[in-house]
Design a protein around this nucleic acid. Structure first.
Length: 430
DNA sequence: TCCTCCCGCCATTCA
DNA sequence: TGAATGGCGGGAGGA
């Protein structure tokens, strides 16, 4: 039975709202249950005035982050998130799985996550990179064909259920989920839960990120990623499913600015890693970000323009909500311009050789971290004067996120470099 | 036409 | 046993 379609309007459980002393953005209240979410209605009840762009997982992720990435937020209830964002619980699961896999959230209990924030990302990425390198090292020597088997197709996977001889890299990956400490005494035989976890969105996210962290090309298409993750000999249906999931993941990671969509020669886009980039390959064998000459797609979707997804479902927009959307769009445009301006600055490499991600502060290139602390004036100079205070909050949130991200990288750049310094021979990805 | 990805069904896992 | 979780693929929106 699925609780999802109704959970967005369900009465909050008593334990589900330990959130935010700081005021959260105002959301339309009460939040109506969208018609399309009617149990069993699904696509059959779709209203044609709705635009799917406004329901995207990436936008939802942006809203989720905007909602919870603030001082005082420690615990997040899924019901609370679902209600505040005006989406079915099912969608929240997608978001939190991806956020958890990159270290932004940590699961505390059923229905409850703790907010770690962007400060958790460098550590998570470091661990992912370490794990990926270890898997490729002597600890897990896998030639290409075995590596393919490691990410074996679902069919092969199914065939080996319960086979003690069939432990694969996939098992190891699932162990990393079940046993973060990589306990050596993990059960040798595959459990059904392991099998399920191998296919989880979180694990797929981690494997997807690992491709970026270890490969020597800066971009990868989702088809390529799916082929690699599935291995050879996969069925077409498995491929389609995997690509669907990668689209979901890519949208969330894009909204987090960990990756960005880029146009390659073919019609299909590829994704470029932004979250962190190493020093030039000549020095340490790790690829820097792709040439800026490569055309970056204008974002098909402008994230962070809505505080809830529910006001613009498949019915007509309410005039007031439309107004809000326009206001928010203005803010998003400013943010976008700010990001573009920051990204246009050549290099973005500080003295330590670290290349900043999307939250790179524009002043970082010219000034060393210690000098770059005048965030308030920076924020003031960019802060639009919103009529809606919630939008001001949203902008302030982004500034805070930049600050946090920058601070984390400033502190962690040495460690990160240490890890980036190890050469990666990963041509098999190509 | 086909890429993109929202949506919700329903199997599995959890408490 | 009911609730929570999340894999999965149909099919509609959009370029």
């Amino acid at each position: 039975m699925s609780a999802a379609p109704h959970s967005s309007t369900a009465v909050e459980t008593p334990t589900a709202t330990a959130v935010a002393p700081a005021p959260l953005p105002r959301l339309p209240n009460p939040l109506p249950l969208p018609l399309f979410a009617e149990r069993g209605g699904g696509a059959r009840l779709r209203h044609h005035a709705y635009s799917r762009k406004q329901k995207s997982l990436g936008l939802l992720c942006s809203n989720f982050v905007a909602l919870y990435d603030r001082d005082g937020v420690e615990s997040i209830g899924l019901d609370d998130a679902s209600r505040r964002l005006g989406v079915e619980r099912r969608r929240i699961y997608d978001i939190v799985n991806v956020l958890e896999s990159v270290g932004i959230l940590a699961r505390k209990a059923k229905n409850r996550y703790s907010w770690i924030g962007f400060g958790g990302v460098p550590m998570a990425l470091r661990e992912l990179k370490e794990r990926a390198l270890r898997e490729k090292s002597g600890l897990a020597p896998l030639p290409v064909e075995e590596l393919s088997a490691a990410n074996m197709s679902d069919d092969e996977d199914d065939d080996k259920l319960g086979d003690p001889e069939a432990e694969t890299e996939g098992d190891k990956l699932s162990q990393t989920v079940d046993n973060p400490s990589d306990m050596p005494d993990a059960p040798p035989c595959r459990l059904r839960s392991d099998h399920r976890k191998e296919k989880s969105l979180g694990l797929l996210t981690q494997n997807f990120v690992k491709l970026f962290l270890t490969m020597e090309v800066s971009t990868i298409s989702l088809d390529e990623a799916a082929k690699f993750l599935l291995g050879e000999g996969h069925e077409e249906s498995n491929m389609r499913t995997k690509v669907r999931r990668l689209y979901d993941i890519a949208n969330v990671l894009s909204s987090l600015k960990l990756i960005e969509k880029t146009q390659v020669d073919t019609r299909k886009p590829a994704f470029r890693w932004l979250g962190m980039a190493g020093k030039p390959k000549a020095e340490n064998g790790v690829t820097v970000v792709a040439s800026p000459a490569r055309k970056t797609l204008s974002n098909k979707r402008v994230f962070g323009t809505e505080l809830t997804n529910i006001g613009i479902n498949r019915s007509q927009l309410e005039p007031t909500i439309q107004k809000k959307a326009k206001l928010a769009q203005g803010g998003a445009d400013i943010l976008k311009s700010y990001n573009v301006a920051a990204q246009k600055q050549p290099g973005q490499v500080n003295k330590s050789g670290f290349v900043y991600g999307p939250f790179h502060p524009s002043c970082a290139r010219k000034q060393e971290p210690d000098d770059c602390n005048n965030w308030e004036s920076l924020a003031d100079s960019f802060r639009p004067q919103y009529q809606n205070p919630a939008l001001g909050d949203l902008f302030a949130h982004y500034v805070d996120a930049w600050k946090s991200w920058y601070s984390e990288f400033s502190q962690g750049s040495g460690i990160m470099q240490q890890h980036l310094g190890s050469s990666v021979n990963n041509k098999r990805f190509l």
